[in-house]
């Protein structure tokens, strides 16, 4: 089976604190892989290293065959890894459509400032490409009614979908989702799961961190569980639900059924 993402003995220390400790896992191509663990177990730190927000202290990260360890975020993004954030990071003074166009900037509009100014025809073409691509994704995620709205005026649930839409503009192979369902109510969560599955079916592999078990257990092909920065279990949802180590980490020792 081909791997899209391989992490080898990944370690991150912040001063004396070991946030991620010798973590290794492999994510298969065409799969939905979840990383779960209690608060402070190092999940977001792991995503931040994969996406290049900061370099790991030790270990290596491979995207397909490419070693992306310590690469800059924008380069990793152009290779085909997009992400969303736990606390939504959108361009709040801009409209939904403009946000999406920034998302497609590097893939669809690579011309520099000077060539942009000197060649209005090419500039027009680039803008049209961005327009078409953003309309496609807006239609796919059913955002038509808010496409021209300024992001700051939208409710939280919509912002989550807009951020996802922006990430899709770079047409990634792998999408990292940091707590995509956090803060959504059950009906919004169900809607969001549908959207995620649609994205997956369009050919994009998903790697997610999530706290809501209904989301994780329903859509994951494989789950990696970490606690205090180390891997404690890995497998499909059924085996994870019955794993004593996992129950201990989440609920406490006394809940283990023997």
């Amino acid at each position: 089976m081909k791997n899209i993402l391989r992490v080898e003995s990944l370690t991150k220390r912040f001063g004396g604190l070991v946030a991620v400790n010798d973590l290794s896992f492999e994510m298969e191509a065409r799969s939905i892989h979840s990383l779960i663990g209690p608060n402070g177990s190092g999940k977001t730190t792991t995503i931040n290293m994969i996406n290049g927000t900061f370099p790991p202290t030790g270990g290596r990260i491979y995207f397909g065959e490419t070693d992306i360890t310590g690469m800059q975020t924008h380069k990793i993004s152009t290779l085909g890894i997009a992400r969303t954030f736990q606390n939504i990071k959108l361009f709040s003074t801009m409209t939904v459509e403009e946000n999406l166009k920034v998302g497609g900037h590097s893939r669809l509009a690579p011309h520099g400032v000077v060539s942009y100014l000197l060649n209005p025809v090419e500039a027009r073409k680039e803008e049209n490409k961005l327009q078409v691509a953003s309309e496609e994704i807006i239609a796919m995620l059913r955002l038509e009614d808010i496409a021209k709205s300024v992001v700051a005026s939208l409710p939280y649930g919509k912002l989550k979908i807009v951020e996802l839409a922006r990430a899709l503009m770079s047409r990634p192979q792998l999408l990292l989702l940091d707590e995509p369902a956090a803060g959504l109510n059950p009906s919004e969560r169900a809607e969001f799961i549908d959207v995620l599955l649609k994205v997956f079916e369009s050919g994009i592999d998903l790697f997610l961190i999530e706290h809501n078990m209904d989301v994780v257990m329903n859509i994951s092909d494989k789950i990696t569980v970490i606690n205090f920065g180390s891997k404690i279990a890995e497998g499909d949802s059924a085996s994870i639900q019955n794993d004593p180590e996992v129950i201990k980490a989440y609920l406490g020792e006394k809940y283990i059924m023997i």
Partner: peptide, 17 residues
Amino acid sequence: RVFTAIRDNIDAVDTCG
């Protein structure tokens, strides 16, 4: 757009490639 994006949220600009 990208200039304004930097003012609004610089981290997100890099993740956009």
